[in-house]
Design a binder for these strands. Structure first.
Length: 870
RNA sequence: GGGCGCGUAGCUCAGUGGGAGAGCGCUCGCUUCACACGCGAGAGGUCGCUGGUUCGAGCCCAGCCGUGCCCACCA
């Protein structure tokens, strides 16, 4: 325990690790499975990759979830934050394969069984880091029931879902065009493909007509695929080619005859208006081929090499080599009419970064249309709400145009398909089929298939567990935009299909935090920050250097400051990372620490918190506190985290510290018992409302509060009173006093009055009885005694409803004072002029709302009173 | 091609119809007994541009310019 008296600076690196242990040992984060989902509050974490490490996106996402969970826990709800990790098929397998490559071996060398064992070993070695990092961040998740998407129970859920959807006919096997990723050697789904700008060469190739005279010229960026051409298509209305429809052309290099067909898909204005059709290697051609019943010769295999269906001299070449060979032969034969460079977008694998090879493959698919219907309705009906709301449109647009999902992956790390083959028979079931000779399908499921079950499979589904009864459906889902389709949509569909309920009612889409140069935060680009480097202190990457200085290291900001900073950044859909915001969070924690020291060291050990005001400023702070509490709660509930964070800062700095604590210092030194109780009350309520945002420091401070019991994190806050505590009179009185002090300080500063000097003054304004002593002290004035009553003022300062007259004294420079008065007069006069002109405008008086007009009149009256007092 | 955003003080960003704000940075003054990672005061803005609606526009509408992201099968 730090010595409060001598710890003038809050030190998060000393406090935070201690507090984490305290929380974990308390068992507070693990709720018993009791009550109903309506009474309880639950959140399922987006499961990070088991071998992953915390990045800024996680830090933001989990700061937000923890804010929600802690807030609800302190409202008295039983809270369950489901935590765990994802096996992340491709990502994890790739990691391990990379390690194997370094050892000079490969998964093929090891064989499937050994390889999978190796991945499990890898997982036990490197897995779980991120869970420890979540604890360091303060995430109040239920670590006692940590889940993994490859746990035995979880696997049962996955198998059951597969079998059930197969039996319904939604899951089926088909030979279809897929996105083949040569990098991972697997098919991947449409969502794992990204389009990139590429400059290619567009080749114009002459295909001689079968009649022996003339040729039809086609344009292509992938000449090697011509080996698999099965037709040429033109637009039916294209005058240039109409007479050729039904004719045949000779496929160069191969000699096959290609029918010239008509299809409206072809754009006459592109290239030559004639399109070569390669059904096996282009998604569009695949569709056209099916429509026209064309054969689907396939010349590029899953290994990326030319197959036996191509002429022998090309077989075995890589696609790139084949392209060079094809172009060379065509040029030799004079069949390349011309070439041009051509910029366009082509698909790349999001996983391996390699260019997608579209090809026809036998894969497992899932029909989505029927599943999508209720999931669309869930959002249009408002049972699932997106925040911000316009993200619902993104979801709906995708759902309404949903396509089949390729769910099989040619990997070894994942849930293996519960499918067995024997000759022409296929068996699908949770257990292997009886009898001999069955071969299990070697493929595994897309990782997102199992992720889609996360909110209920983690609670024990398909068993009817107490956890499921108590915590499903969950309440909020907090995630990033980029997985709305991959994950959110699929969870809603699966939740509805298998549990009959939406898996959550609110989806909060976090902003994406970008590097200062506008790029994504990414380790490989050098634009990433490790959140732990911010928390504990660590190297600052060069792009985050400030003011032209060398980057140096981050100071150890602490988890509270990082959390607060991230929340404060969270407005809009994209935000630049701002170290200043984290620094502001650090300032806040330091300020709160010192305010707490003032109170705790000042009140004495026997004081107990009680909300008993005795003065106008007491009533003021209670009123302001209640407003701040109410506002903060409302902002958290509507997922407005940046305003929640900034509003908390404003209350602590702008009201509690700048004014209230300054106002009561004399009473604190006098040891007034009622004040001590009130200060403890205000402190306790302040740290309680701040706790969901800055949990560590507030927990630490709470441990020093006399009479406080247990953990702050477990404290149930009194409900907001909805404004009943609001004390308009006290707020008005103190607000006027603040304005007066500020006006007087400004005058002092500009008139050059020495900072420590006390100046004699006379008050010429009504309504300051309760606050006069405070104003005199904070503005360093003393009231004129009876002898000074008749003196001529050397300066007159406008304050609300009147003025303060400054009487002559040695401290004052009279010229400066006069200048100030003149300036103030001019300023007031111009404001009065503005208000008068506004009120003279008949249109304004006639058409503006009465309250607005009245407010303008009141303002004019006030300004005139102030001017008169000068 | 479609969709969603953004453009306000040097920087990062608040501000959804009624006198332009915060944090940081900058200037000036304070070793005031919670905090010098502090306190007090201040300077600094044609609110991207043009037009429109309105008594009144940073805010609403239209167009334009700049910029970011998502979706999409045009060789």
């Amino acid at each position: 325990m730090p010595d409060l008296e001598n710890t003038k600076r809050y030190d998060p690196s000393e406090v935070e690790p201690r507090i984490v242990e305290k929380w974990l040992q308390s068992g507070l984060f693990h709720p018993e499975p009791e009550g109903t989902p309506e009474e309880n509050y639950s959140v399922a974490i987006p499961p990070p990759n088991v071998t992953g490490v915390l990045h800024m996106g996680h830090a933001l996402n989990n700061s937000i979830q923890d804010c929600l969970v802690r807030y609800q826990r302190m409202r008295g709800r039983r809270t369950k934050w489901i935590v765990g990790t994802d096996h992340a098929g491709i990502a994890t397998q790739t990691q391990v394969e990379r390690a194997l490559a370094q050892e000079g071996t490969s998964r093929r060398d090891l064989g499937r069984e050994t390889f999978v064992e190796r991945v499990w070993k890898w997982r036990s070695q490197y897995g779980g880091t991120i869970i420890e990092q979540l604890k360091r961040l303060g995430a109040s998740a239920d670590y006692d029931t940590e889940r993994f998407t490859l746990d035995d129970d979880y696997a049962q859920a996955v198998l059951k879902v597969f079998v059930s959807l197969y039996e319904k006919g939604y899951i089926y096997r088909d030979r279809y065009m897929v996105n083949w990723d040569p990098g991972t050697g697997s098919a991947i789904s449409d969502l794992e493909v990204e389009q990139r700008e590429v400059r290619d060469t567009l080749y114009y190739i002459d295909y001689p007509l079968a009649t022996g005279s003339g040729a039809i010229t086609v344009a292509t960026v992938r000449p090697e695929t011509m080996l698999a051409d099965s037709a040429i298509a033109v637009h039916p209305d294209d005058e240039r080619y109409r007479r050729l429809i039904g004719e045949k052309a000779i496929l160069p290099l191969v000699g096959r005859k290609l029918k010239i067909i008509a299809d409206e898909y072809v754009r006459p204005e592109f290239g030559t208006g004639a399109l070569k059709i390669t059904p096996a290697h282009d998604p569009n051609d695949f569709e056209i081929g099916r429509k026209h019943g064309l054969p689907q010769p396939s010349v590029i295999g899953e290994d990326g090499r030319i197959t036996a269906e191509a002429p022998e001299r090309f077989q075995g070449m890589t696609a790139a080599d084949a392209q060079r060979a094809v172009v060379a032969e065509l040029s030799q034969q004079g069949l390349i009419a011309r070439t041009e460079t051509y910029g366009h977008t082509v698909p790349f694998s999001h996983r391996s970064g390699q260019r997608i090879e579209p090809l026809i493959s036998l894969q497992w698919f899932m029909a989505m249309d029927e599943l999508a219907k209720p999931a669309i309705e869930a959002v249009t009906s408002g049972r699932v709400r997106f925040h911000p709301a316009n993200q619902a449109k993104v979801y709906l647009d995708w759902m309404e145009n949903i396509r089949p999902w390729c769910i099989s992956r040619q990997l070894w790390w994942g849930h293996r398909l519960p499918v067995w083959y024997r000759d022409l028979d296929t068996y699908v079931g949770m257990e292997p089929p009886p009898g001999e000779g069955w071969e299990r399908d070697p493929d595994v499921l897309d990782t997102w298939f199992s992720s889609a079950l996360w909110p209920f499979a983690t609670l024990g589904w398909p068993r009817e567990t107490p956890e499921l009864r108590a915590f499903y459906p969950t309440d909020a889902l907090v995630t990033a935009r980029d997985i709305i389709f991959l994950w959110v949509a699929r969870m809603i569909m699966m939740g509805l299909e298998f549990t009959g309920s939406e898996p959550f009612s609110d989806v909060y889409i976090t902003p994406i935090i970008q590097a200062p140069d506008g790029r994504r935060m990414s380790k490989s680009l050098g634009t990433g920050i490790d959140p732990l480097d911010l928390i504990n202190g660590g190297p600052r990457p060069p792009v985050f250097a400030r003011g032209g200085q060398p980057p140096g290291d981050f100071p150890a900001y602490g988890a509270d400051a990082v959390r607060w900073g991230l929340l404060a950044m969270s407005s809009g859909q994209d935000v630049s990372f701002s170290e200043d915001k984290v620094a502001q969070g650090q300032q806040l924690t330091n300020k709160l620490w010192n305010a707490s020291r003032l109170i705790l060291l000042g009140v004495g050990p026997d004081a107990r918190a009680a909300a008993t005001p005795t003065t106008v400023e007491d009533r003021w702070i209670l009123s302001r506190l209640e407003r701040a509490r109410t506002e903060l709660s409302a902002r958290i509930e509507r997922f407005d985290f940046s305003h929640a964070a900034l509003g908390l800062y404003d209350f602590i700095y702008g009201e509690l510290c700048d004014w209230y604590l300054e106002l009561v210092k004399p009473r604190l030194r006098a040891g007034e018992p009622e004040l001590s109780s009130l200060l403890l009350h205000v402190l306790t309520e302040t740290i309680a409302m701040a706790h969901p945002l800055i949990p560590f420091e507030t927990e630490e401070i709470y441990s020093y509060v006399p009479g406080a019991e247990g953990l702050l994190a477990a404290r149930v806050r009194p409900p907001e009173d909805g404004g009943a505590v609001a004390d308009a009179a006290a707020e008005e009185a103190v607000q006027r006093a603040i304005a007066a002090v500020q006006a007087l300080r400004r005058w002092r500063d500009q008139a050059g009055v020495r900072a420590g000097a006390t100046v004699t003054a006379r008050l010429e304004a009504p309504g300051y009885d309760e606050t006069l002593d405070h104003i005199l002290r904070l503005a360093r004035l003393s009231l004129a005694d009876a002898n000074g009553d008749g003196a001529e003022p050397v300066a007159t300062i406008a304050i609300p409803d009147g003025a303060v007259q400054i009487l002559p004294s040695a401290e004052l420079d009279l010229d400066d004072a006069q200048t100030r008065i003149d300036e103030q007069r001019a300023k007031l006069a111009s404001e009065i002029d503005r208000a008068e002109r506004k009120l003279a405008n008949e249109q304004f008086v006639a058409r503006a709302p009465a309250a607005v007009v009245q407010a303008e009149r009141d303002k004019l009256d006030r300004l005139q009173a102030e001017l008169k007092a000068l």
